[in-house]
């Protein structure tokens, strides 16, 4: 059996694997965005205690391998509560990506000129309102390119959940390799699947970026 035969023959089996990879990545990113925004707020806060809490979180997450985090959330946690592979893996990915996303949001919030907040405050807006209505919408827009980059990293990193037995793309490739013995072909095929998913993700991120940057370019769309 050659490369193309293996590729075509394994397509049906990959369908669920693709969906599982997409699901766990989306779950991880959703959790990661929430965690990221939360810790970004702690980091831009004027309260030193909150800065330190955020720094500690980011240090803990960035200072340990993702695979260790996944194993803690699955094999470690299963002694107390079994969340299942999808949820455990998704939360682990969320916690992991949350630290990086926090830094992205922090950077984009701090990149917004102080004058924006000052103008909002001078009009009588509260600090929360200035953040929510003036700073955040601009910051989120600026965060899209680095976020897109992080989304791609998250998608590829999700392959590590194969090691807790989650039936994702990489898990599938390992099974195909062990049943056929065609290691080179199996892993090139799964590589192609990741490339296609990254291509789609890049396309979506670019579309979002373009749609959101309309007003910055001064286009009137009211």
């Amino acid at each position: 059996m050659g490369f193309w035969e293996l590729f075509i023959e394994t397509i049906p089996g990959y369908k669920d694997a693709i969906i599982n990879t997409i699901n766990i990545t989306l779950l991880g990113l959703l959790i990661g965005l929430g965690i990221g925004l939360f810790f970004a707020f702690l980091k831009v806060s004027k309260l030193k205690v909150l800065n330190i809490i955020a720094d500690m979180y980011i240090y803990l997450v960035r200072g340990t391998p993702l695979i260790v985090q996944i194993f803690i959330l699955y094999f470690g946690l299963v002694q107390f509560v079994d969340l299942g592979r999808l949820l455990s893996g998704g939360i682990a990915l969320g916690i992991h990506n949350g630290a990086y996303i926090a830094e992205i949001f922090r950077g984009s919030i701090q990149s917004i000129d102080r004058g924006q907040t000052e103008a909002a405050r001078s009009l009588g807006m509260t600090s929360t309102m200035s953040m929510r209505r003036i700073v955040l919408p601009q910051a989120l827009r600026r965060a899209i390119p680095p976020l897109g980059n992080q989304f791609i990293i998250a998608l590829k990193d999700s392959s590590l959940v194969a090691f807790i037995g989650f039936q994702d793309l990489f898990n599938r490739a390992q099974r195909i390799q062990s049943s056929t013995g065609m290691a080179m072909e199996s892993y090139i095929i799964v590589g192609i699947y990741y490339l296609i998913l990254v291509l789609i993700l890049t396309f979506i991120v670019n579309r979002i970026e373009r749609a959101l940057s309309k007003s910055e370019r001064g286009v009137d769309h009211e």
Binding site: G115, E118, A119, A120, I134, P137, Q138, S215, E216
Partner: peptide, 10 residues
């Protein structure tokens, strides 16, 4: 303000 500080997203 000197630098106007208009909200660019509005």
């Amino acid at each position: 303000f000197q630098h106007f500080n208009l909200f660019p997203h509005k």
